[in-house]
């Protein structure tokens, strides 16, 4: 049978192909067009390249970036609940993604190429695991709240929230936790058991209550988790998830309406 990492890399290659085609078609080309069309408008105005660049890509101030890209305060205008749940999803996703990447490079690759163990089996791994449990929990809670709210208020929320989007990311998160729990159920003496503070009690209960073939089951759920995660990445540029890329950029640049105001002013000055 195919080794689970071979399966994983095949998945990654397929998912990343879709991801990059989508990012090119639905994002890179769009940004290129925006720069081109704005540049065409300023051509012939006799302005220097520095001023032209500032008009094409106006640098937002720090407050705008904080409010729009990091805190997403605008969602608060709809409701504080939506804001909190989005912040849980956003921060949970960003942190778990960063830690996962760090674990891959500083853990697996550092071990493979430099025999550096701190982040793979040393105390560093415990720290990473702890952070991943915590951010995973934030993500899971945010997504669960989102799905319950969307189902209960289906009529009002249908226009704004897509259920299948939430469900896909929820499945990624849920199978991630499940994979961890089932792995630990088969390894009750794992020295890093303490770091998995959420799944530890569940794993211990599973391990003592059932006598299933945990390693085989763990591999199966791990593959399921990898499949959902790959599907999520492939789906990003073709779905509302594209806002992960486009919203922080577009919202920071257009600066809470200031950019629109400046564009209108330029037109009226041109007619003066």
């Amino acid at each position: 049978m195919m080794d689970k990492f071979t399966f994983f890399w095949c998945l990654i290659i397929v998912a990343m192909t879709f991801f990059f085609i989508g990012v090119y078609k639905n994002f890179a080309v769009k940004i290129g067009f925006i720069l081109w069309v704005n540049n065409r408008r300023h051509n012939g105005e006799g302005i220097g390249w520095r001023e032209n660049l500032a008009l094409l890509i106006p640098l937002p101030n720090r407050q705008v970036v904080m409010d729009e890209a990091l805190l997403q305060r605008r969602i608060k205008n709809r409701s504080e609940f939506l804001w909190l749940r989005h912040l849980l999803i956003f921060s949970g996703f960003v942190v778990i993604f960063a830690l996962d990447l760090f674990l891959t490079f500083a853990g697996h690759y550092a071990h493979h190429y430099f025999h550096y163990e701190y982040f793979l089996s040393g105390p560093g791994k415990g720290l990473l695991k702890f952070g991943m449990e915590l951010s995973g929990a934030a993500l899971f809670i945010g997504l669960s709240l989102g799905m319950i709210h969307r189902i209960v208020y289906a009529k009002a929320e249908k226009t704004y929230v897509e259920l299948k989007l939430l469900l896909l990311l929820w499945l990624v998160t849920a199978t991630g936790f499940l994979a961890e729990g089932i792995r630990l159920a088969g390894q009750p003496n794992d020295p890093l058991m303490l770091s998995s503070f959420i799944m530890r009690p569940i794993a211990q209960w599973l391990g003592t209550s059932f006598s299933w073939n945990w390693p085989v089951l763990a591999d199966g759920v791990w593959c399921l988790h990898a499949t959902f995660a790959a599907a999520f990445f492939a789906y990003i540029p073709f779905s509302k998830f594209i806002h992960i890329l486009s919203a922080p950029l577009g919202r920071s640049i257009t600066q809470n309406g200031e950019y629109a105001y400046q564009k209108r002013q330029r037109i009226s000055e041109g007619l003066l």
Binding site: K30, I31, F33, I34, V37, N38, R41, R74, N77, R78, K240, I242, H243, S246, A247, L249, G250, R251, I253, T254, G257, Y259, A260, Y261, Q262, K263, R264, I267
Partner: peptide, 19 residues
């Protein structure tokens, strides 16, 4: 998705983000 790229492209600053 409310990303405002359309506003970046619009010559008249027309599209506005609603509540």
């Amino acid at each position: 998705v409310g990303c405002m790229l359309c506003l970046w492209a619009c010559p008249f600053g027309a599209p506005q983000l609603g509540i």
